[in-house]
Structures are given as C-alpha cells and as structure tokens.
Design a protein around this nucleic acid. Structure first.
Lengths: 349, 349
DNA sequence: AGCGTTGCAGCAAGCGCTTTCTATATGCGA
DNA sequence: TCGCATATAGAAAGCGCTTGCTGCAACGCT
C-alpha cells in the first residue's frame, strides 16, 4: 500500500489538513509543527497523490507544449526554452510543474486530441508551437477548443503561430512574411532574376507566409514569376533534395533556390552538388530558421534567423503568468537575415 | 461550471455509473442506452475529468519520457519513436495516453525531480533515454526511485542507457563500447596512428563507454596513447570546435579526430577548416550516432549509426506491455559503422 | 478584570469519478 | 406455473486530497 496524507498525519500527530497545509505552504503553520510533519514525510517517503490533489484543488501542475515534430530541432529548441521557463524541476521556487511535450506529427486529428487530453488533465497552461494547419473546419475546431480551454482557466499561448482572434489565446507570431521578403530581396539585390522556391506543405500558415514574402519581393522588383519555379514538399532534407532535382529539370537556368527552411535548403545543396553545380557560383541557396547546423554547411547557409529560444522563453513566461501579455495579446517576432556563403552573385552577371 | 458525469447522466436519463461504463467500455451496456449516453456526451460537449478518473481508478494514462536534451535530435528522434508507440492520439484503438517528454538538461536533480513528479502523477510507464550520470550517490538515488516506481506498478524502460540491475527496469542498451571500438579500428585500418579524441562530459556512461571502445581498439593494435590526445567537452558543436583547436595546439601531427558524437564532429570539421586543414586529406574525422544532418556535411561524416528510432519504438512497445521484455530484462543494441567521406588514409602514409 | 484579536489546528464536506454490490427484468427449463 | 440463471442498471461507498469554517488558547487592549 502506498503512503497517504493520513499516514503522515498520524505519524506526525496532526490532522491531515495540517499536513496538506505544510506541503502547500499556503497557510500559517507553527514552525515546530511544520518540522514534525516534514520529518514524518521524509521518514515515510511520502509522495503526494497528484490526481487526488488536482481533483480537490481543481487545478493541476501540468503544462502542455504542442509541437509538430519533436525530432526537428526547430521545435526542440522552442520546447526546450519553454520548458526551462515553465520551471519544471530546477526552476525557481514555487510549484513544480510538469511540462508535457506532445508531438502532433503535423496531424490535425492528433492536434485536437492532444488538446482534449490536456483539457481532460485540466492543464494549467498550453503552448502551441509552429505553423497552423490551414483548413477551415480544423481551424474552427481548434479555435473552439482553445476558447474552451481559456474559459476553463487554462492559459493558452501560441508561439510561432498566427493569432487566433476571439479565442483568448496570446500569440507570439514569427514574421515569416517579412523574413521571406527580406531573404528574397537579398538575392535580388545580388542580381538574381530567376529564383526557384521550395515551399513546405501547402496547407500550412508558415508555408504560405514565407512564400507570400518571397512573392512580394519579386513583385516589388518587377520580376514576373514563372509558375514552374515553385515546388511544394515536406519540411525535411529529403524533400529539398527531390524538389531541387525537379526544379532543375523544369528550368535549368535558375540561379538561386530559396527553401522553406534550413533542412530543405541542405537537401537542395546536396542535390545541386550531385548535379555537378557549385554553390554559390552556379546556384545560390537560402534557407530559413538558422538552425545550429546551418552554419556548418559548406558553404554555410544564408538564412533568416528566428529567435526560437527567446520566443519560447517568452511564451513560457507568459504561460506561467510571469510576464505580461503583449498589448492586444499579439506580438510579432522578427527574424534577422544572416548572409553567409551559400548566396552570391549569379553566374550570368 | 464545467459539465460533469452527473450532468450527462441526467440528460441521458441514466445513472452516473452507466455513463462511466459507456465511456470506459468495460462493462455490458445495452446498445440503446449506450447510444443515448453518447448523444448526451456529444450534446453537452463533455470532457472527462482526468484527475478524478485517475484518483478513482488508481491509474493514469500518463507515460513519461525523460531526455537529456530535447533540442538535440538524438533525443528528439528517440522520443518521437517512443511517443508514436505509446499511441498518444492517433495510435491504435485502446486508451489514449498522454506522452510526457521531460527535459532534464542533463542535471541530476532534475532527473530525480521529474521522476518524483511522474511518480506523483502515478504514471503508467516511464522511459529513461540516453546515458546515465556516473555519480554513486545519484545512481543510488535513481535506482531507489526506479525501484519504487516499479513497485508501484509503473513500467520502467531504459532506452540507450545502461541497465539498472535489481530495480526491475527493462534495459535496451546501446553498444557504445563496441561502436567506438569499431570506429577507431576503421581509422587504424586506414593507417592512422595518431588519433585525437573528443569525449563528452566526463561523468556520463555514454562518454566513458565510447572512449573505452576507442582505447580498446588502440590497445588491440599496440598503439600507445598520448594523454594529450584526449579532451572532454559537452555534446555540442561548439564544444567540438574548441576541443579541436585545443587538440591541434597540443599536437599538430594528429591525423584523425574521433568525436563523441556527430554534433561534436561537425564542430571539429569547422575548426579544422578554419585552421586551413583539409578533410580527410590532412585530418580524418569521425562522429557517432549518424544523425540526419551527418550525411549532409561536406565531406559527409564517417560515423556509427545507432538505430535510434527502432530502439525507441521497441522501448515504447515494451513500456506499453505490447512487446515482451528481452530475456533477463536486458538487450544490447548494436550500432553500424558508416564509412563516408570524412575518413581517409593519413597524409604521411 | 473583561473581551475582542490573533494564531494555529482540526472537522468535515466535498472534488468527479470508478466499482462493488444489489435490484430489477427478462428468458428459460422443468 | 415456478424458480433460477442471465443481462442490465442503479445505489453508494470510497479514492486521497483541499479548504471553509469552527474551536480554542494565549494575548493585548481599554
């Protein structure tokens, strides 16, 4: 049998109520009593029953973090930063919280189910990271769920995800559009006029925004885009490799390739090399995110740095109520263009 | 007010007990009744109260996954595989389980605290991933905790971590020693006699085992090791960069560098390049793990592939009781040597 | 000296669910 | 026709904790 509060109370010769108060430290208890209780707790090796506590107090110390792909450092870095602020163990004083990282795999159903599971656990807060799925029905369902969570007292923060108006969720959005535009403008500035674009999955906000930025840059410079220059794929290296071969097949005269993110860009680099093309002499390549490995690529990757860790930390603090929400509940986080070796002047110029 | 079981019962004109039984599906309920209940659940948008349920049933649907660094794909890949098997949402039929990924950051206290937190939540299972910390006191504390968890009915699986005898935990261990030995033997076979080694943090089992393998290979070939050839650091790129500069300073005649893992190896490559050395013509480099980006390095990295996803999946299945534990509760998982471009014959030969 | 404070501790009522045991139908064989 | 097995639903007793309220000293004030 496991040790209960009552056992501790008996051993310390106090009432269960007193033990509870000592443990929660939210009610005055005489020092001598407290000591006796703590001694009993220690001797009996007592561990609080979480569910019972959550039930009685109508709150839990669980905090959920939803990520699209836990194996992707993009999410790993954010999750890590969020968790550090959530304060799991090792955090500052105050209640220990259990950060729950949930891997949706980019699946709408899973996303929704995890939210329900978290709701079921009466999570204290939930942080949703990364781009949202652009499907009207799914969005509506998500918004409804989020609204319900907020109503139930769960703090919901969106980190690197577009705002969900009217839901009560706080949003820390990445300026994917602006970053995409800046990146492409950099390439145009170098003289590129024929740019291939490898986008992520079609129905993702991140994908759309980055592509919109790219197109805005083209438009701003009067470059007419050829439909053949855009290919969509997944957010991984493999996809970048294949998409690049496809782009090369469609139009071998491209002088630059802009990728949906750094992993895709790395795949693109590999494909270009395997096709006998030099980077950046023959083709320039640009990524997005500036993940740690990007600087190690040869040549190192020109990309847009997203302050993943900073944004995650801030989201974590907001989720814990340790930082005020931005005005209007929405903040846009800008990326920073990192010009490196993978981009250069086009061969023709 | 939130909707409770009783509300649903009232609406469906049945007793709370019946609603519970419909929801759990572990007791015969007439089809017509079931239907009525489900309709009420749907209409009221009822969400089960997890803590209450866990309290009453004395079980929970939480499964904990402890990782050293969630931002490191090494752990991300394992966690992802484990979670997929845990079945979270999207898994096969049967109870939905919430996989909780806990980031210890390699800190002993956090590791222990998370275990307590999971114990508090009455987790159904716990998977501990990655190398353990080699500190007698900490190990003893961990073992005691694990034993307690097991006694309380929580299934504990160690994935990529050395066995903890007498605790009742199932272990899926990586053969780090064998992999390290094979790797170094490959380099020796190419003709290298002066090999630098960049190890991970000193007090980690993974670090020690890989280094032991390395030394075993040297010894087997009668190569006497110079103490200056070994440097310890963290498991990240930065550390590899710095350690390499240090090694070069200590002995510029090294013809090969073996790194604690792929990230470190990438840092080593960068340092070598920045020092004007070619890979592998001047210095060969080898990593460990074979993470996805390793093949993209230029030249691609010679390394030892660890079946991270497979091992994680197996650990997940064992944790869920869907696969039998290996005989003796211990299984060793071997790595596979991947010979690629970063290793070649030494310049002197 | 009388009485309102103040400081601590205990009582007991739940929190919302699960589950054992009991009650009521229904069906069947004898 | 009666009795008993079978199927289904309900009553109620908790699960282990939190917390509002009450109780009771010891204290200080007028």
């Amino acid at each position: 049998m496991t040790v209960t509060l009552a056992d501790v109370a008996a051993r310390a010769q106090v009432s269960p109520a007193t033990v509870s108060r000592v443990l929660n430290g939210n009610y005055p208890v005489a020092a001598s009593t407290r000591e006796r209780v703590l001694k009993a707790v220690d001797e009996l090796d007592y561990v609080l029953n979480g569910p019972a506590s959550a039930l009685a107090a109508a709150t839990s110390d669980l905090v959920g973090i939803l990520v699209n792909d836990i194996a992707d450092p993009f999410f790993g870095i954010m999750a890590s930063a969020i968790q550090a602020e959530i304060g799991g163990p090792g955090g500052r004083a105050g209640g220990e919280r259990l950060a729950v990282v949930c891997n949706t795999g980019g699946s709408p159903e899973r996303e929704l189910t995890y939210l329900t599971l978290l709701q079921r656990q009466r999570a204290a807060a939930v942080v949703l990271t990364g781009g949202a799925i652009e499907d009207a029905a799914h969005q509506a369902a998500m918004d409804a769920k989020v609204r319900k969570l907020v109503e139930a007292g769960t703090r919901v923060v969106l980190c690197g995800r577009p705002p969900a108006p009217e839901t009560g969720a706080i949003a820390l959005t990445f300026d994917n559009r602006g970053g995409g535009q800046e990146l492409t403008e950099h390439l145009i500035g170098l003289g590129h006029r024929r740019l291939g674009y490898i986008g992520g999955p079609e129905e993702r906000t991140t994908t759309r925004h980055r592509l919109e930025g790219h197109r805005a840059a083209l438009a701003a410079h009067g470059i007419e885009e050829d439909p053949r220059w855009t290919v969509h794929g997944r957010y991984d290296r493999r996809s970048g490799y294949e998409a690049t071969l496809e782009l090369l097949r469609r139009d071998p005269s491209l002088t630059a390739i802009v990728a949906a993110n750094d992993s895709v860009a790395l795949g693109a680099c590999a494909a270009l090399r395997d096709s006998g093309l030099r980077i950046p002499e023959d083709v320039s390549v640009a990524g997005f995110d500036d993940l740690p490995f990007s600087i190690d690529a040869v040549p190192s990757l020109t990309t847009v740095r997203l302050p993943l860790a900073e944004a995650g930390a801030r989201a974590g603090r907001i989720a814990m109520g340790r930082e005020e929400a931005p005005p209007g509940g929405i903040a846009s986080v800008r990326g920073e263009l990192m010009v490196r070796g993978s981009s250069g002047v086009p061969r023709s110029s």
